[in-house]
Amino acid sequence: MSLACKLCIRSLSLPTYPNRPLSKLSSWVGPLKGCAKVKIRVENLSDRVTGEILKDAFSDFGEVTHVEVQEEQNNKIGILKMRYNQDAKAAINIINGSPLEGNLVKVFPIYEKRRPKRSRSKR
């Protein structure tokens, strides 16, 4: 676990146990993979929602690094990137099903597909 992740976990108000290693506490906030940027998809946005409104709603939970609002099959969706996994997880859990500019929004994490590593043949 990186130092940045340890600092992230310590900044949360989690119960601390002297016999429990810090890596076990990460189960409270979910898996932390190097505190990489996390993508979030927000569906069922009203026509009044802009990128700035979406950024304001999610910035209460942590640093938002990218916001994009798109039309997709007569539905307006938002794509966000947040700096830390635990911030994104908290935002997803709390904002999902909440009203935003008149509509109840659906919030999902976007998991990127990893390409399988190519095996190198020995020469």
Rank of each mutant, 00 (worst) to 15 (best):
K24F: 11
G34D: 08
L14H: 03
N75W: 01
K39P: 02
L3R: 11
L25Q: 10
N74G: 00
A36L: 10
P109E: 14
V42Y: 07
S26Y: 00
E63L: 12
D56Q: 15
K81M: 09
K117G: 10
R41K: 13
K55Y: 01
K24P: 00
N96K: 03
C35L: 09
A91G: 07
N74R: 05
P31G: 05
A57L: 15
K33C: 07
D56Y: 14
L80R: 07
T16R: 15
P15F: 08
Q86H: 09
C8Q: 08
T50A: 12
R118C: 07
P109S: 11
N85K: 07
K117D: 11
K122T: 14
V69T: 08
Q86D: 06
R41P: 01
I110M: 11
T50P: 06
V67D: 00
C8N: 12
P99K: 12
K6S: 12
C5E: 12
I92T: 03
V42H: 08
K37E: 15
S59H: 09
Q86S: 08
F61K: 07
E72I: 02
R48Q: 13
N44G: 00
S11I: 00
V69W: 01
G102Q: 05
R48E: 13
N19A: 10
S27W: 09
V67M: 01
V29H: 02
A36F: 05
V49R: 04
K6V: 10
L54D: 11
L7R: 15
R120W: 14
V49G: 10
F61A: 11
R118N: 09
S13C: 05
I53V: 15
E112L: 06
K39I: 06
R114Y: 02
E63C: 07
L12S: 02
S2W: 03
A4P: 00
L80D: 13
M82W: 09
R83L: 10
A57C: 14
V67W: 00
E43C: 03
C5A: 14
P99C: 07
E63R: 12
A36M: 05
K113M: 06
A36D: 03
Q70P: 04
K76R: 15
K122W: 11
G97A: 03
K106Y: 04
L25D: 03
N75F: 01
V38F: 05
K106E: 06
G78L: 09
P21A: 12
A36W: 05
V107E: 05
G97D: 02
S46F: 06
N103H: 11
R118P: 09
I53P: 00
K76L: 07
F108A: 03
S11L: 05
D56R: 15
P21E: 15
F61C: 05
C8S: 14
F61L: 10
L100R: 06
V105Q: 01
K37M: 09
G30W: 03
K24L: 06
L25M: 10
I92E: 05
R48G: 12
K33V: 09
N19I: 07
A90F: 04
K106W: 00
